[in-house]
Amino acid sequence: MCTFILAFQAISMILFSTMASIKGIMCQFKYFVRLQKIIIEEEAMLLAWNDQKTKEIYTKHTKYSKKLSKFFLLAAGLAASVLVEMGCTNSYKVYKMEKRVNVSLEKPLPLKLWYPWDKNRYHILTIMSQFLDIAVTAFYVAVAQIFTTTLLIFLRAKLQIMQHQFRNFDRNFNNRDIITNGVETVRMLCVKHQNLIELINSVNEALRNIIFVEFSMSSVMFAAGILQVIAGQDLLLNIEFSISMISFLMLLAWNANEIREQSSKLAMALYESKWYEQKHNTKAIIHFMIIGCQKPLSINIGPLGPITVDAAMSRIRLAYSYSSVMSGEK
């Protein structure tokens, strides 16, 4: 393998570990804990509503979130298992070789890391330490991905529920006769809309740095995986790693993009309501709400603008360009 591919592999491993550490540390900030409490309270209010359609929307998104969480855990666990299996297999081959030739050989390790002791002499200790590092890193990656994606799915569910409420604002959602007072009902929904905007802005502020780190590093890591596949190095591991990187990035972009898409449908949901049956002052409030809903809400990649599927695809194309140029230099 060429020297630059080895260097690229080392850079990729450093970036991946750094990204996992940064995301894991950020998710433990007090700001995130406070955000989790707000979302738990919001969820309790959603489940307390007696409207069946609202519960159906939320249940659908809950099931979707659970499926993605299982996928993230499976993908991270599979990558860690492949890496551990490779370490065990390579070590066993070297031990068999040592017995056959009766010469001490350099022991292979899954990760090329520095240790303050002789790695050959204390090979068992070193490789067990690496297995622990691999397990912890995989856990942090999966949990951070689950946390980020679950937040986005929750916001998407809230937006779809708000569309339902806008479209049917003349209905009784909380066992109260709100039909007799259209102005109060619309004002209540206007307050809920403002609260949802504040919640999305809070999530955006909390996630923008995490997402910026992921988008910034993903191209280099994906390109490194492709290069190693082209070079025929650790095919199973690098194929699984590349597929996981693409899946994580595209799922993140898809769910973030859905917030933008669903928020843009709020104005149409109001227009599809029975606003024409309301009094003049109620119609005026609805008119201003429709104007306010024209601007879509979005989750941003730090200072680089909103997350979209096109933004994720551009990262993948950039990684492919990296790998094409580097493989041409072999």
Rank of each mutant, 00 (worst) to 15 (best):
L151N: 15
T3P: 00
E277K: 09
I259V: 08
S314E: 14
L6N: 10
K112W: 04
W49K: 13
V186L: 15
S314C: 10
I14N: 13
Q9I: 07
S202E: 07
R187C: 10
Q145P: 02
I301N: 00
G305S: 02
N174W: 09
V84S: 02
R315Y: 09
F72C: 08
I243P: 07
N238F: 14
V103K: 15
C190D: 15
Y320I: 06
M97C: 02
M128V: 15
E272T: 07
K107E: 05
E42D: 10
T148A: 10
W49Q: 13
I285H: 01
A138I: 08
L6P: 00
T149N: 13
W114A: 08
Q130V: 12
L105K: 05
L109E: 07
P116Y: 00
A144Q: 03
K96T: 05
I226C: 12
Q233N: 10
M250A: 09
A253M: 08
C88G: 09
L207V: 01
E214L: 14
K37C: 00
A79L: 14
N175E: 09
K279C: 03
S65V: 09
T308I: 03
I57F: 12
F16K: 11
K279I: 04
H280Q: 14
A80F: 05
T89N: 02
L270Q: 08
I307V: 15
A311G: 08
L35G: 03
R317L: 13
T3V: 12
N255Y: 08
L304E: 10
F131H: 13
Q233H: 06
I38A: 07
P303M: 05
N50M: 08
E277Q: 09
S81C: 04
L113H: 01
L297S: 04
A269K: 00
P303T: 04
V309P: 06
S202W: 01
I230L: 10
D118W: 08
D310Q: 14
N102F: 01
L270D: 05
W117T: 06
N102P: 01
I299K: 00
M13W: 09
M245E: 05
G225S: 13
A142L: 00
T59C: 11
V103W: 06
K30N: 02
F8N: 11
I127G: 04
L297R: 04
I14L: 15
A256Q: 07
T18E: 14
R176T: 00
M221T: 11
L151T: 01
Q52K: 14
K37H: 04
F16G: 12
Q52T: 15
M86N: 13
V229P: 10
E41T: 01
V191C: 11
F241V: 03
N204F: 06
K66E: 15
N204R: 11
Q294W: 05
A44S: 12
K99F: 02
I11H: 13
S202M: 02
L111P: 07
M86T: 12
A224S: 15
L207I: 06
K70P: 07
L151M: 14
F241H: 10
F173R: 02
Y322S: 00
V325H: 01
A224Y: 06
I299M: 05
R171M: 13
V141G: 06
I290D: 00
N90G: 03
S65N: 09
A206D: 01
V94T: 15
L152H: 05
